[in-house]
Simulated assay, not measured.
Amino acid sequence: MRDDAAFVKELRDELSQVCWLAPEEIRARGEWRSRRVLLLTFAVVLVMVSGAGVVVVARHLLPSGPTAVTGPTLLAEPQSRLDDGPLAGDLTWPLAEPDSGEIPAQALLQPADLPTGVGEHLTELGLGETVEVNPMLEACRQERGLPSQAVSSQLSRSQTLLGTGPAPDLLLMQDVYRVAPQTATRFFTDLDIRMAPCTSWRSVGDVEIDGRPYQAAAVHRFTVSARDFAGDGSVLLRHTMTAPTDQSDGRQLGPPDRTDSVVVRVGDLVTVLRLGPESTEKELRRLAGLAAQRMCVAARPTC
């Protein structure tokens, strides 16, 4: 009993030294985590799944009210991600422990790299996450019964930069992944192989717009519009989608769209960059070059 009592006393003494988060801080962290889930939909706001078919029916606009969804979204936030970042307005970052393999904040693009002011800076750490280049590419492979062939990372760090104002615009989303060295060296070759069956993909699915059900179709295309312009290797991946149309009468249900993203490798680090809907290809390529420079501080081997 004396040993048990001593253990309880030691546990009580240690717990008394723990700095517990205040309720308002817990709520704030939960709120920004939920916001990142929504912001991930800047490329695809509403993805409907019907059987094996997938169709995008709206893009770039966050829904202002309840939206009927007939299937799961493809951009759900991974549950394994842990909050390790500053709250809104706090741009102070901790350094990684030497030789820990962790990706420090200094390896990511910084607010000063953007041409416009940053109001909020959100970040997360991940362990064993899948390198997500484009979720619709994975949807295409799944619909065609192909294996995912997605790459798993060892560690990752993600950030979302928002503008200022009461309804801030999305400025940047960036994921940086540390992958196995042999995976890094063949990453872009494997990406070309994964894209090959999806250069043109027609998706069909049941959707609901303004309370009315439709069966809609759209054609997605994935192309590499530029290569090797940053780091040890890079691609500018372009995803275009034709206007979704009603299968019954061919009526257009939404506009066509195009989304550009950049993938850059430096050593064993791979980053994926996506900008807000008002960005340009020129700005995306500029930031890709800066991202490659930033990753040098954590890449193996170093630059």
Rank of each mutant, 00 (worst) to 15 (best):
D4Q: 15
A6F: 10
V8I: 14
R12N: 11
R12E: 13
Q17C: 11
V18D: 07
W20L: 14
E25A: 14
I26N: 09
R29N: 03
E31V: 11
W32Y: 12
R33M: 13
L39C: 08
L40K: 13
L40N: 12
T41N: 13
F42I: 03
A43I: 00
V47R: 11
M48Y: 15
V49H: 15
G51T: 02
G53A: 06
V56Q: 12
V57G: 11
H60Y: 14
L61N: 13
L62T: 09
P63G: 06
A68E: 13
T70Q: 13
T70V: 14
G71V: 04
L74T: 14
L74F: 12
L74E: 13
P78F: 10
S80H: 13
D84C: 15
P86Q: 09
L87G: 15
A88T: 11
A88E: 11
L95H: 11
D99S: 13
S100H: 08
I103Y: 06
P104I: 04
A105R: 13
L108A: 06
L109W: 01
P111I: 04
D113K: 02
L114G: 03
P115A: 10
G117D: 09
T123K: 05
L125V: 11
G126V: 03
E129A: 04
T130C: 05
V133E: 05
R141E: 04
R144I: 06
G145V: 03
P147R: 12
Q149K: 12
Q149M: 11
A150Q: 13
V151G: 03
S152I: 10
S153C: 06
T164M: 12
G165Q: 02
P166D: 15
P166K: 12
P166I: 12
A167T: 14
D169R: 13
L172Q: 00
D175C: 07
Y177Q: 04
Y177W: 10
Y177H: 15
V179Q: 02
P181V: 09
Q182R: 14
A184Y: 06
F187D: 02
D192L: 06
R194H: 13
M195P: 03
M195Q: 07
C198D: 02
R202Q: 14
D206V: 12
V207L: 07
R212N: 08
Y214Q: 07
A218H: 08
F222T: 01
T223N: 07
D228C: 00
G231A: 08
G231M: 01
L236Q: 06
L237N: 00
L237H: 08
H239I: 04
M241S: 12
M241W: 07
A243P: 07
T245H: 10
R251L: 10
Q252D: 07
D260R: 00
V264A: 00
V266G: 05
V266K: 04
G267N: 05
V270R: 01
V270W: 00
V272G: 02
V272R: 01
L275Y: 00
L275I: 01
G276E: 07
E278T: 10
S279F: 00
E283L: 03
E283V: 00
A292E: 05
M295Y: 03
M295G: 04
V297K: 01
A298Q: 05
A299L: 05
R300N: 15
